[in-house]
């Protein structure tokens, strides 16, 4: 079990663009520095926030405890078939 590459790349690229690439294209003016700092900090904090959330769930040690009706509902709505066994 490990991280899927796709979300990682997508998010890193997204916040990378915001935080590293975008500051170069800020129009010149008295507020250029402020906008650059704003962009970089936004990207850094948001990326780290997402990363923490993602990694916390990467290798779950326990599973969610669900009530029976919810499990049935999940199976129906989210499309995971409940295995039919007749023991």
């Amino acid at each position: 079990m490990a991280a899927a590459a796709l979300p990682f790349i997508v998010f890193t690229a997204l916040w990378g663009i915001v935080g590293i690439v975008a500051p170069f294209f800020v129009p010149k003016g008295p507020n250029r520095g402020v906008i650059q700092v704003v962009l970089m900090l936004t990207a850094a904090t948001c990326w780290l926030f997402w990363l923490c959330c993602y990694m916390a769930q990467m290798n779950p040690l326990i599973g969610p405890k669900l009530e029976a009706p919810i499990i049935k509902l999940m199976a129906r709505e989210w499309g995971h078939a409940i295995i039919m066994t007749s023991e």
Binding site: M1, A2, A3, A4, P7, M58, P60, L61, I62, G63, P64, K65, L66, E67, A68, I71, K72, M74, A75, H80, I82, I83, M84, T85, E87
Partner: peptide, 25 residues
């Protein structure tokens, strides 16, 4: 929710097992 119906019916609550019920990512 990979549990069986018997499982679900037998218990009030079912704790999903990360080893089986987790998609991996």
């Amino acid at each position: 929710a990979n549990s069986t119906y018997t499982d679900v019916d037998a218990h009030q609550e079912v704790q999903l097992n990360p080893s089986f019920d987790y998609a991996g990512t």
